[in-house]
Simulated assay, not measured.
Amino acid sequence: MKGPTDLERTLRTYLAIMTALDRFRRANQPFDRLTVAGVAHAAGISRQTIYRHYKTLTTPISIALQQRMRQFEARTATPFKNSQHFVETILEFWVPNRALLKLVVWAQLGPQLEADVRNWVAGRLIGTVAPSERPILVNYYTEVSLGLIKAGLAVGGPIAPFIVEQTQLFQRLTDNGRGLINRSSTIN
């Protein structure tokens, strides 16, 4: 009988570490107080196994975030139909990924999430807006996207009413933004 392959062992190690990290997060253990030895013990593996696979304890969380971002980018390859579709797409993808997002926040990987979302937004705007408008819109859509993702962390009940509420808010923000831009261009 054959033993597990290297890939299977690596996957088991990854899952054991992620499970241990999530247990520490749920126990309100500060991330910056974790030790490799403590995580290894909780995961049922050796410290050397962790060091062999990962540079830091944030690396497995970062890998999971990168994987989810690739899935999100693939899901959003087609243009959004309207603001409701934009909000729905973000929330329907990220709300089920709350456990990962909680790990991201706990491990203080918010800047990585922001950079990933910023790159996603910038990629979506290439060829769709004038280069002079792109920086403002990248900032705007990045902040809106991050706000939706963070708000999705707090959703405890059904997501449908939350999507409607967030869509209406996004539409008001967009309309107000257009009004401000139109007023400022007439002042000059």
Rank of each mutant, 00 (worst) to 15 (best):
L109H: 10
K102P: 07
V164F: 06
Q84F: 02
G157D: 15
Q171I: 15
N176P: 05
A122E: 15
I61L: 12
P131V: 07
V129C: 03
Q112T: 09
R12S: 13
Q166W: 08
R23L: 04
E8V: 04
V87A: 03
Q66I: 04
I90D: 07
F93P: 05
T142Q: 07
E92M: 03
E114H: 05
K102A: 02
E73V: 07
I181T: 14
D116Q: 04
D116T: 00
T89A: 06
A64W: 10
F170H: 15
V117D: 01
F86K: 05
L11T: 14
P4L: 14
A16W: 11
N188T: 15
T5D: 06
E88F: 02
A107K: 10
T35C: 09
V117G: 03
T59G: 04
A115H: 09
V138C: 00
A99Y: 05
V129A: 01
L101M: 11
P111V: 00
R178P: 07
E114M: 04
P96A: 05
V138S: 01
A107M: 09
W94S: 06
P30H: 03
I181A: 08
N182F: 05
I90T: 04
R134L: 01
G147A: 06
I136G: 04
T174F: 07
Q71M: 12
I187N: 11
R70G: 02
M18L: 12
P131D: 03
L15M: 10
T76A: 05
V144C: 07
L34G: 12
L173Y: 08
A42W: 13
P111C: 00
V129R: 13
G127F: 00
S145H: 05
N139L: 02
A20F: 09
R124W: 02
R172I: 15
V105H: 08
G127H: 05
L34W: 11
L7A: 14
E88R: 10
Q71A: 13
P161L: 01
T78Y: 08
T19S: 15
R26C: 09
S145V: 07
P79K: 04
K102E: 01
T49R: 14
E143C: 00
L15K: 15
E8W: 06
T78A: 00
E114G: 01
L169W: 13
G3P: 06
R47S: 04
L153V: 11
I163Y: 05
I149P: 04
P79D: 12
L125S: 01
G44M: 07
R70A: 08
A43E: 15
R12E: 15
A160F: 05
Y141A: 02
D116N: 02
P158V: 01
R12Y: 13
F170K: 09
N82P: 00
V121I: 13
A74V: 06
E143F: 00
Y140I: 12
G177W: 02
W120H: 09
K150N: 13
D22R: 15
L101W: 06
H85E: 02
F86W: 08
L125Q: 00
L180V: 10
P79I: 09
T167I: 12
Q112I: 03
K102I: 03
T89L: 08
K102C: 01
A154L: 14
F170Q: 15
E88Q: 08
V155C: 06
R47P: 10
Y14M: 10
M1Y: 04
R98A: 00
Y14K: 14
L57D: 13
